[in-house]
Computed example of a mutant assay.
Amino acid sequence: MLRVLFAFVIIIHGLIHFLGFAKANSLLHVDQLSQPTPKSLGLTWLLIGLLFLTGAFGFLMRKEWWMLLPIAALLSQILIFIYWQDAKYGTLINTMIILICAIAYGTWSFNRKVESEISALMTSDSPTQNVITRESISHLPPMIQKWMERSKALENPSIQFAYIKQTGRMKTTPDGRWMTFSAQQFINVTKPGFIWQAHVRALPLFHLSARDKYAAGHGNMLIKLQSLVTIANESGYAIDQGSLCRFLAEMIWYPSAALNDYVEWKEIDEHTVEATIKYQHLSGTGIFTFTPSGDVGSFETLRYYVHKNESSLEKWNINIDENSYDEFEGRRIPKNASVTWKLKSGDFTWYKLEVQEVRYNAL
């Protein structure tokens, strides 16, 4: 609705510029323009009006023509300076157009960067999808075998790629306010990696664009206010390690990853299994706890907690709503989960999510 309203305002603004052309060519008597208008400037009024109309329709249709709008606004402002007495109020519209286009450009640029990263991530050297059989899981601990059957990974093709759409709430500090978010995540299962892209509603009229990335053994967290101003751009060993542990934990959504060579399993007791993931220069270990029926109930690992430019190894826990299991594309996975840092100062639950959509392999 706001998109349509903005485009409507631009169209009206553009049509007003045609009055300058009409006056210069004696097509209309325009009382609002008291200053004389030569034909050369009349053509300029016409050109700028056409730029506004083209940009407005591009904005409506989500085409890159909308980038004509700030050019049109700047040219329009030059004319307004020439005809300041008659046209000064157009400055308000031009300023609004430039500000909104700056935000739109930030979003476009951010999305384009992420789309390029997704394209690079979602490639595989082994296009064959092997069907998981009882024989292929016979070497795994009994509870993992039970999980493979319970999750319906058994007798289904192995998952090479996954797409997960989420909604939920998150906060950045223990005493901070909850912020709603919507996110999409792309996962390469054969070559461990993911890209998580989120739109976070920080405050009314303000949003955060976030992208968490793990590819080729390295992680990076990028957060921008209004997609323009960088709030965080974190990388390094602590981020790499945390991203690898996150990939391990999120096997709850792509369970056939448990069979890949980069994961080793060790039974602790009847309902608890230790998993170690080794990839590139890193390794990480976590504990999966299962219900008697074979569903994953929780996951816990040591992960670097980065706060105020410092990092420390802390317990990181994913707790799964055992009543939220549902079937997506033939696999039984949990929909609802919460993520908690178990800090010395107390538990900090910072992330609550609900899975809305899942796609496997054919993305």
Results as ranks from 00 to 15, higher is better:
residue 58 G to P: 02
residue 155 E to R: 11
residue 144 I to F: 03
residue 250 E to M: 05
residue 121 L to M: 09
residue 225 L to G: 14
residue 255 P to R: 01
residue 356 Q to S: 08
residue 302 L to I: 12
residue 278 K to C: 12
residue 354 E to V: 05
residue 328 F to T: 05
residue 166 Q to L: 08
residue 210 A to S: 13
residue 357 E to D: 15
residue 6 F to I: 08
residue 332 R to S: 13
residue 211 R to V: 15
residue 61 M to W: 13
residue 145 Q to G: 08
residue 199 H to D: 13
residue 47 L to H: 02
residue 136 S to W: 01
residue 167 T to V: 15
residue 110 F to T: 06
residue 24 A to P: 00
residue 8 F to P: 01
residue 35 Q to H: 08
residue 175 D to M: 10
residue 59 F to N: 04
residue 269 D to T: 08
residue 293 S to A: 14
residue 222 L to F: 12
residue 152 K to G: 08
residue 354 E to W: 02
residue 185 Q to V: 13
residue 159 I to H: 01
residue 268 I to T: 04
residue 86 D to H: 07
residue 70 P to S: 06
residue 52 F to V: 06
residue 188 N to L: 02
residue 86 D to M: 08
residue 35 Q to E: 12
residue 260 N to L: 15
residue 107 T to Q: 13
residue 171 K to G: 02
residue 139 H to K: 10
residue 246 R to S: 12
residue 330 G to C: 06
residue 263 V to G: 03
residue 267 E to V: 09
residue 94 N to S: 06
residue 158 S to T: 14
residue 143 M to R: 10
residue 111 N to T: 14
residue 181 F to Q: 05
residue 200 V to H: 03
residue 192 P to Y: 03
residue 69 L to G: 01
residue 8 F to W: 06
residue 307 H to V: 14
residue 35 Q to K: 09
residue 183 A to R: 01
residue 200 V to R: 03
residue 186 F to Q: 13
residue 308 K to W: 10
residue 221 M to E: 10
residue 185 Q to I: 11
residue 344 K to I: 11
residue 81 F to P: 00
residue 16 I to D: 11
residue 48 I to L: 07
residue 227 S to T: 10
residue 12 I to T: 12
residue 316 W to S: 02
residue 322 E to T: 15
residue 80 I to L: 07
residue 174 P to Y: 03
residue 304 Y to N: 14
residue 79 L to P: 00
residue 267 E to A: 14
residue 298 S to Q: 07
residue 230 T to E: 00
residue 312 S to N: 09
residue 39 K to S: 10
residue 344 K to R: 12
residue 350 W to H: 11
residue 216 A to D: 15
residue 137 I to W: 00
residue 64 E to A: 14
residue 331 R to Q: 09
residue 121 L to E: 09
residue 193 G to Q: 04
residue 336 N to V: 13
residue 148 M to C: 01
residue 86 D to K: 07
residue 331 R to C: 05
residue 3 R to F: 07
residue 124 S to Q: 02
residue 176 G to K: 05
residue 357 E to R: 10
residue 167 T to M: 11
residue 126 S to N: 14
residue 192 P to H: 05
residue 40 S to H: 08
residue 163 Y to A: 06
residue 143 M to I: 14
residue 251 M to E: 03
residue 203 L to M: 14
residue 42 G to V: 04
residue 261 D to P: 03
residue 245 C to G: 15
residue 247 F to D: 11
residue 93 I to V: 15
residue 353 L to W: 03
residue 275 A to H: 02
residue 360 Y to F: 09
residue 267 E to H: 09
residue 139 H to W: 04
residue 182 S to E: 15
residue 124 S to P: 00
residue 241 Q to T: 05
residue 122 M to T: 05
residue 121 L to P: 00
residue 229 V to N: 06
residue 337 A to H: 09
residue 43 L to K: 10
residue 256 S to T: 08
residue 251 M to A: 04
residue 147 W to A: 11
residue 215 A to W: 01
residue 189 V to P: 04
residue 13 H to K: 06
residue 194 F to S: 06
residue 255 P to Y: 00
residue 151 S to A: 06
